[in-house]
């Protein structure tokens, strides 16, 4: 007996109808709820406290999808207007600028945000805002390197550091933005030479994150390492005694103090173009920029607040003030692809 086409297709059609009905219903129900969906590259436990505080204040529940910013951006592009994300949170301004140039964000006009956040830490078009600052610093082994022996990022390329430099992989956005800033400040040719020279100076092929580089210094695998400032803070109070000891064996250098200043970056966020809860997202941004949250960051995650007068971190005081590279952080996005290509070419 020959199959009847109608009979084959009917169950399929029913299934399709069911699925589409399901998809149509789900977002509609979500809109009624006081929720906020983050696509976030931030990965700090203490952020949960902030979400709790925010919920207490506004009744809005924060849901987090965590992945690297690039993966989240790729996901946002695929999802288009069906995305569940309201807010894209990154740990790098370049990624936000990239998301903005891909038309994934929407501007928000908030006097509060403009007042609280300095202009160079937010997008001129109001597509994204920084709420914490981190410096990419150099640390050196107290017992093997003399103070003043290394002062700039450019010094890392000096042949005297051959086999002594520790840095995480160029696949990390932190290094990509550092190279992007070198391209912006020194030009592409010099940045390319820097990537190659640092590659030759490496003590080992990159392994692990920033903390692992500091730990490697304490095991004498290398003498200088590049690391984000807040990781040092977290290591100083780590549950793991080996990390505390590793921290105690290094000194911190804010690079390029005699010229442009240290490379800084932000953790920031922008409201997605197709956010289902843009109002909740705006409230959350204002909450992050507000004094309560700003006071929490320096003590909990050891990030610098955007409003430095609220910095109550004892640790930051011991490190002292530093001069930051005034480069507009949006510039990092423009040079990002070139930086990725240089690092891939450099092989680390």
């Amino acid at each position: 007996m020959r199959p009847n086409l109608n009979n084959c297709l009917r169950p399929l059609a029913r299934l399709a109808l069911f699925i589409s009905a399901l998809c149509a219903v789900l977002p509609a129900r979500a809109a009624e709820e006081p929720v906020l969906n983050l696509y976030s590259h931030r990965h700090y436990e203490s952020d949960d406290q902030l979400f709790e505080a925010f919920k207490k204040k506004t009744g809005i529940t924060v849901n987090v999808t965590q992945a690297t910013a690039d993966q989240l951006i790729s996901r946002l592009r695929g999802e288009g207007k069906d995305t569940a994300a309201d807010l894209l949170v990154t740990v790098d301004a370049g990624r936000l600028a990239n998301a903005s140039s891909l038309d994934l964000l929407q501007p928000v006009d908030s006097p509060v945000l403009k007042e609280k956040i300095p202009a160079h830490l937010r997008d001129p078009g109001n597509f994204w805002f920084g709420f914490t600052v981190r410096a990419r610093v150099i640390v050196y082994a107290k017992d093997r390197v003399k103070p003043g022996e290394i002062k700039t990022y450019e010094d890392l390329a000096d042949p005297k550091w051959r086999g002594r430099v520790l840095i995480r992989s160029g696949e990390s956005v932190y290094n990509q933005s550092l190279v992007a800033s070198l391209i912006a400040n020194d030009g592409k040719a010099k940045a390319a030479a820097w990537v190659e020279a640092v590659g030759a100076n490496l003590a080992r092929k990159p392994l692990g994150g920033d903390r692992e580089q500091v730990s490697a210094i304490s095991r004498q695998l290398g003498d200088v390492a590049v690391v984000n400032s807040y990781y040092l803070g977290q290591m100083s109070v780590s549950k793991d005694p080996a990390e505390r000891e590793a921290y105690s064996k290094v000194s911190i250098v804010f690079p390029n103090q005699e010229n442009r200043g240290s490379h800084i970056n932000i953790s920031g966020a922008g409201i997605t173009k197709y956010a289902k809860h843009p109002e909740n997202a705006r409230k959350f941004l204002e909450f992050l920029a507000g004094d309560e949250a700003q006071k929490v960051f320096p003590v909990e995650t050891f990030e610098y607040p955007v409003n430095l007068s609220l910095d109550t971190s004892e640790l930051h005081k011991t490190w002292g003030p530093f001069k930051a590279d005034p480069l507009n952080l949006g510039e990092l996005g423009k040079n990002h692809k070139a930086a990725v290509l240089l690092l891939e070419e450099g092989g680390w």
């Binding site: 699925i19 998809c23 695929g78 995305t83």
Partner: peptide
């Protein structure tokens, strides 16, 4: 799933439990 959602004209299936 992106293709399928487009073809069926339904909400996005990628990134859902389905």
């Amino acid at each position: 799933l992106i293709q399928l959602s487009k073809a069926l004209g339904i909400g996005l299936l990628a990134g859902t439990l389905t």
